[in-house]
Amino acid sequence: MKLRLLLKCIAPVFVAMSISNAHADAPLREAGLAEASPEDAGVDSRELVRLSQWIREQKLDVYSLLVVKDGKLIFERYGAGASRDSNYELYSVTKSVTSMLAGILIGQGKVSLDDSVATKLAAWRPDLRADLADKRNVELKHVLSMSSGLHYDFKPKDDPIYYAAPDRLKLAAETNPKAAPGAEFEYTDINPILAAAMLSAAAHEPVERYAKASLFDPLGMKHAVWTRADRSGLVSAGWGLRLRAVDMAKIGMLVLDHGRWQGRQIVPRTWITQMTSPGVAPYFGYYWWINNIVQNEPEFDAMGFKGQFITVLPERNTVIVMTSVMSVDGGLRDAKNLQTFRQMVNGYVIPALDNANHARPSAQRRAALRHELAISAHTKGVPGAQVDPTDLPSL
């Protein structure tokens, strides 16, 4: 009887351990993305273990943190109950993915950077012709570089552009010019609404459907969902996309390989260069940030509200991905979540990449990494910002 009771008590523990180990050792089976240990890629895993420990010590609410080196996933950390198959609200990382779609459509000759917002959208939505009349000089390149010069009075809470607007494009069309197109950089979410409409018009289908066929499916993405369409059916190109962390990594890898994926040119090479080159602002291209995380070497990144990142380090052939809920205090380029991520990358990941001479494979290091990842998988940090239902990882 006592033995039976003991087995009954410890059985769930062994089952949980088996599930955890099975997940940790499961083959990735992701097209174009293999797995390797950090040391096999010339990376010092001890720095990555220290990073994971630091995240736990700081009680940071990090759902996923991935490092891809030379096309191989060498570090894959999940927390707060998230997993490899979880997708996440990317917020403004959506813009960076949208830029790639713009590049594909431009390469196909379906739209041009010089296309007028008023001309294209008045043909697509004749009911908005009068509202768009004062935007004849606003072109797609201005929308993608955050230099349209359009003013919108954003409300601090429950702004209809984000929540309840039945027709976001009408709100965008009704905005007033306050600066000449191309004259000033101003990060405003009016621009990606116009982008979503222009790209949908060019593709002759909703931009999210075009994304699936031209980008998500070719890269073998799973559970990709573009949410928050308004009542007219238009999504924003500025938020609402949900991807898995491994699929975010694929976006970074596509940038690293100049738009190629497994030998196939998905995004034109010339567009990758344009997209990641300074425009009106020295730190911003077409919906991609430049030297925003790492300042002393080439670096491109996508970043989203509350702490979502794709960072590309071309000279190191490395991509770093994070999803989290961290503090948004501090403004666009000084938010606390951005400062924290900079500390992670510059203080831990880059030293791990730089320490190739001490990246010696050993059973002890593999065990230490596996142990730390197992602990982190069951650790939930303290959210640094309000957690909305859309912030939670889902399958």
Rank of each mutant, 00 (worst) to 15 (best):
M1N: 15
M1Q: 12
M1H: 04
L3W: 12
L6K: 11
V13P: 00
S20Q: 13
A22M: 00
A24F: 02
A24K: 02
P27R: 12
R29S: 07
G32H: 02
A34E: 11
V43I: 00
V43R: 03
I55P: 02
E57N: 09
K59Q: 07
D61N: 08
V62C: 05
Y63H: 12
V67Y: 02
V67T: 08
V68S: 14
K69G: 05
K72F: 05
L73H: 06
I74S: 07
F75G: 00
E76P: 04
A82F: 13
S83T: 14
V93Q: 10
M100W: 04
M100V: 10
A102E: 03
A102R: 10
G103Y: 02
G107A: 14
K110G: 14
S112P: 02
L113G: 15
D114V: 06
V117C: 13
A130F: 04
D131T: 11
D131S: 15
R136Q: 10
N137K: 14
L140K: 00
V143C: 05
F154T: 06
K155I: 03
K155H: 08
K157T: 05
D158A: 13
P160A: 13
I161H: 03
R168D: 06
K170M: 01
K170C: 04
T175D: 14
F185A: 00
P192N: 08
M198W: 15
L199Y: 01
E205K: 05
E208H: 09
Y210C: 01
A213M: 04
F216L: 04
M221Y: 08
R228Y: 10
R228Q: 10
D230T: 07
D230H: 13
R231A: 11
G233S: 06
V235M: 04
S236E: 02
S236G: 06
W239K: 00
W239D: 04
W239T: 02
R242D: 14
R244A: 07
V246E: 13
A249I: 04
K250L: 07
I251P: 00
M253F: 12
L254R: 00
L256G: 09
G259I: 05
W261E: 06
P268W: 11
T270M: 09
Q274P: 05
Q274R: 10
P278N: 06
V280G: 01
V280A: 03
A281Y: 15
P282G: 15
P282C: 09
Y283I: 10
G285F: 09
G285H: 11
I290L: 06
I293G: 06
E297V: 01
E297N: 01
E297R: 12
A302P: 03
A302C: 06
F309N: 01
I310E: 13
V312T: 08
L313G: 04
S327W: 11
S327D: 15
V328N: 07
V328Y: 02
G330F: 08
G330M: 15
N337S: 07
T340G: 10
T340S: 10
F341E: 08
R342C: 11
N346E: 14
Y348W: 13
V349D: 08
A352R: 01
L353N: 09
A359T: 03
R360A: 02
R360N: 09
A363N: 06
Q364F: 06
A368G: 00
E372D: 07
A377K: 10
P383W: 12
A385W: 05
S394H: 12
S394A: 13
S394N: 15
